[in-house]
Design a protein around this nucleic acid. Structure first.
Lengths: 382, 382
DNA sequence: GAACAACTGAACAGATCTAAACAATGCTGA
DNA sequence: TCAGCATTGTTTAGATCTGTTCAGTTGTTC
């Protein structure tokens, strides 16, 4: 591999994950840590990343849309000041964009920032402008945003609806009637295939759950709890993967292993109360591990365990689902990381492929599923 | 090889993979490193690439087009980048391919020729060599072909297994152990996700069946027969789509509407006998339309109808599934056309994206579903 | 705050890459 | 046929990069 390629990979890793760990990266690439460190030093000198103890974090990019998405951990050492104004690429300055793509996301706070970053990166790479609308999980707001963007003459639209199903979404009519290509992100279009000309890109959460389960099963766990936010569109798919993985090793799903967190928006104390109750159930049933959907809940869960003197991972293993903040707990949590960035990137790419004449790619409508990965941290091993 | 060709190859390598390693490239081409370096120096002087230690990297291209450098129509040698010098290059001499991709298909007689053509087109567009093996639906032959191609050092593999499931295919071990990227075409990898690092591209036959059903339902048909070749991997998915479409309009699947053709390989008279019997059942049950999987059967079916004086489409509507030869009957048949060509094209494209360096596309493993289209002919309307 | 683990960077050795110089090859035109 | 020229391969010294070791630093835990 070329030195240049290696450095490119480092930057890519940072774009994708926001941070990079020297030891882990070196091992994965089959190179020495010293080499990685030398690269990091050089790239920092160019102002392309920021070194921290143990690795590096992404530099806030001077990209177009101004959403700040810094690694929340970013603070770290003060003694490494980025060098004075490392070369800034003049790249595509005020180029007239090829096209404008609208993007309607349910949230800009959790999960979707990374999807948005992916779409931004694709937009930058492909020279198009991206316009974002956030619906805050409100169906009417969603409708309004879509209407606004379509009326403003965007050349394509990326949409993630609040609910999993599009079938009874009033915005579906808008989408069906639209004359621009539309790509649905992270949602199913199975039940509306013939009502609108849509394409989709999504994380394969069924597979994500399977990956988590296989990890736990490999570690010897047999009695594994599942703890889902029922209100989330993702829940049913995660449960499906959980069941498939159980079934594959001849185990049956069991009601004493399946727990729901009913309301996501409630106050922290309420959430904690729910989790304490779930934890009671789990301990009574003698389970040894859990998959907890949503990092926030998983962190709270870990917290409750530690408060009770349950050691993680010795007494109980925990896998979080989403990998937004799973690394930041007292015990860094092993987590399933859906390919959020890639979903955004590909969604934009697919949408642009349909703009104008469909150059290049295939004419058939696509549905793309992207596999999550498992990031192993200390809540399951050692 | 001509000097000019060699330089063209260098540029193509850069366009395709983003970077080039002198030692590796020289060996692959059977030339000395010094020669490559001299070429690189020259090309850098022309501003056509950027040298780095160990090789060169692509120059950021002027146009924002970025990703897509292939003209979809550009089958024949597309010299779109007029080289500075005047001399017209003699059409691609003995160009050394960038990579060689192996392809193992169950048949080269029905359905798969179009898939193969798609892969061929992609191979031509992307400048790689495609090597084909046909298994004739024999598992042992399949194993042998895969083994042969891997041993011969292909850089990637496209495989369509004989059976729908890979889970109990002995070749799975080969695929899992292979060190080159592998893309499965037209088959499911759901049940082997964690046993091998695979990607997949397939026609969405569930949706294909739904499209056919919606067409018939729109025409006012309510009692619609389904006639499948049970031995085909496609059958179960088509049935699923059939049931979903029925369910959506509040109808239940009914055993008197579901027919199977048991043996595909038998003599024409046997097939005809089966179809006559099915037709008896359909007439007895008072059905008004049918979806018949496999064009061949559908043509035979139409023939039987006509022989009995059943008029198509007036008395009975018929939709064929596959659209290989559906247009060639006495009555041209409306048919569901799976995106065979696109499946082949995309499969090769995805495979090549994983070859060598991982630039450009997303890292997450992909599963792509492509929607069939309905080709309306005179067996359902007018 | 002491013990411990993990990380960092200097220094050196070995591997790999580069380019100059020269030799070998093959084509061109007299 | 042969000199002249362009292209390519080989050799070699020096430049650059990479891995290892090790002492010192930073961060964590108790």
């Amino acid at each position: 591999m070329l030195t240049e390629d290696r450095r490119g990979l480092i930057l890519r890793e940072l774009r994708l994950r926001g941070s990079l760990n020297v030891a882990e990266f070196a091992q994965r690439m089959g190179i020495s840590g010293m080499t990685v460190r030398r690269d990091l030093a050089l790239l920092e000198e160019q102002g392309r990343l920021q070194r921290v103890h143990g690795g590096a974090v992404a530099n806030p990019e001077p990209g177009p849309a101004g959403i700040d998405h810094r690694s929340p951990a970013g603070a770290a050492g003060g003694h490494r000041a980025p060098l004075p104004a490392g070369r800034v690429r003049p790249a595509s300055t005020t180029q007239v964009p090829l096209a404008t793509i609208g993007m309607v996301m349910p949230s800009a706070a959790y999960y979707f920032p990374t999807v948005i970053r992916g779409a931004e990166a694709a937009a930058r790479d492909l020279g198009v402008r991206l316009v974002l609308g956030v619906s805050n999980y409100s169906a009417t707001e969603e409708h309004r945003q879509i209407e606004r963007l379509l009326a403003s003459g965007v050349d394509g639209l990326l949409v993630t609806t609040s609910a999993e199903s599009l079938a009874d979404n009033p915005a579906l009519e808008l989408l069906a009637a639209a004359e621009v290509p539309i790509v649905i992100a992270e949602r199913s279009i199975d039940d509306v295939v013939d009502r609108a000309r849509l394409e989709s890109v999504r994380s394969d959460h069924v597979r994500g759950a399977e990956i988590a389960m296989n990890h736990l099963l490999d570690l010897g766990h047999q009695r594994i709890a599942l703890c889902l936010r029922e209100s989330s569109p993702t829940a049913s798919r995660v449960r499906e993967g959980y069941r498939i993985a159980l079934g594959r090793v001849g185990l049956m799903p069991d009601p004493t292993m399946d727990y729901a967190i009913t309301d996501a928006r409630s106050a922290p104390e309420v959430l904690r109360g729910q989790i304490e109750k779930i934890l009671d159930g789990i301990m009574d049933a003698g389970l040894t591990a859990a998959i907890v959907h949503n990092d926030e809940d998983a962190l709270m869960f870990a917290d409750c365990c530690l408060a009770r003197g349950i050691r993680i991972p010795e007494d109980f293993a925990l896998v979080a689902y989403d990998d937004e903040i799973a690394s930041l707990g007292a015990v860094p949590l092993t987590a399933v990381a859906p390919p959020k960035y890639d979903v955004g990137y590909q969604a934009l790419q697919m949408c642009l492929n349909r703009v104008g004449s469909w150059r290049g790619t295939s004419a058939a409508l696509q549905q793309v599923s992207l596999s999550p990965t498992l990031v192993v941290r200390s809540s399951t091993v050692r």
